[in-house]
Simulated scan of single mutants.
Amino acid sequence: MATLDSELLEGLLVDRAWLKGRGIENTTVDYYLRSGKLEAVIHGLYRKPGPPLKWQNVVYSLTLLGYDVHVGHITALTYHGYDHYLKLGISQSIRLFSPQKLPRWVERIGVKPGFSIMKIRPFPDIEVGMTEVPFGTWDWPIRYSLPERAFIELASTIETREEILQANLMMEGAANLRPSLLQVLLESSTSIKAKRLFLWLARTAGHAWYRHIDLSKIDLGVGKRQIVPGGKLDTEFLITVPKEVHDGQQESIF
């Protein structure tokens, strides 16, 4: 007979469907709730009482519940060590990507620093450019974007001058990106904006790996794109960018 102790590890979040799939019926769930062996984190979502939840508990629990989800964008870049180029001193919400619609409770669960479910996804459903990072006592695997993918994810959402300046500072520290992986990712990406802006940032940074990217194999679309209003048009990638970066005169924004 299935029991709570044999099926549910501390730190995991599950719903009634998951518990029922392991032989724990609703009446038994209700008993565990009354007895304090199980607690409701949010309506319909349960855990064993224990230490405060970490955001990684939530992400791994989503995979346990059958969701295809990974940590990307600025969160992945922070994990890979690029956060010191930002110097923002503020807590960034955890950026999650999924080809599925994630449950509403993800953004309401109250686990700090909170979650942002990314609506713009610059890649089709490909697994390229990701890695698994073990978390917790049981080394639960959390999927993260590698820096190459995370930079393109970041470029897909940039809308302001300040965001471009911050991305430019991070790109200056990205001397070790792998052009072979970037080539695959750029050829696979469906976001014209992300590809053009990433390549512009890469060219501006002047790293050696940029010269190994074959632009002729990347679909960059046609026509001009305005990234920031009042910017200067880059004649190669046909995007408007902050004049001070385009002309090589960026000053500190901090």
Rank of each mutant, 00 (worst) to 15 (best):
D5C: 01
S6W: 06
E7Q: 15
L8K: 05
L9C: 04
L9I: 08
E10V: 14
D15I: 03
A17L: 05
W18V: 06
K20N: 11
G21I: 10
N26Q: 11
T27P: 01
T27G: 04
T28H: 08
D30Y: 04
G36W: 09
E39R: 14
A40F: 00
I42H: 04
I42K: 10
H43W: 09
H43E: 08
G44C: 08
Y46V: 03
P49A: 05
P49D: 10
P51L: 11
P52D: 08
Q56G: 04
Q56I: 00
T63P: 04
L64R: 08
D68P: 00
V69K: 07
H70V: 02
T75N: 05
G81W: 05
Y82H: 11
Y85I: 05
L88C: 00
G89A: 09
I90M: 13
S91C: 00
R95M: 11
F97A: 06
P103R: 07
V106P: 06
I109A: 03
I109K: 07
G110C: 11
G114H: 07
S116R: 14
K119I: 13
K119Y: 00
D125N: 13
M130R: 15
T131M: 13
E132L: 15
E132R: 12
W140A: 10
I142H: 13
R149I: 08
A155T: 04
T160S: 15
R161N: 01
R161W: 00
G173W: 13
A175W: 14
R178F: 07
L185K: 09
L185I: 03
L185Y: 12
L186N: 03
E187P: 00
S188A: 15
S188I: 01
S189N: 06
S189M: 09
T190R: 14
S191P: 05
K195I: 06
R196M: 07
F198A: 04
W200H: 01
T204K: 14
G206W: 06
A208S: 14
Y210D: 01
D214H: 13
D214Q: 14
K217D: 03
K217I: 00
V222W: 14
K224P: 02
Q226N: 07
G231E: 02
T235A: 11
L238T: 01
T240N: 01
P242Q: 04
V245S: 01
G248C: 11
G248K: 09
Q249M: 05
E251N: 13
S252Y: 06
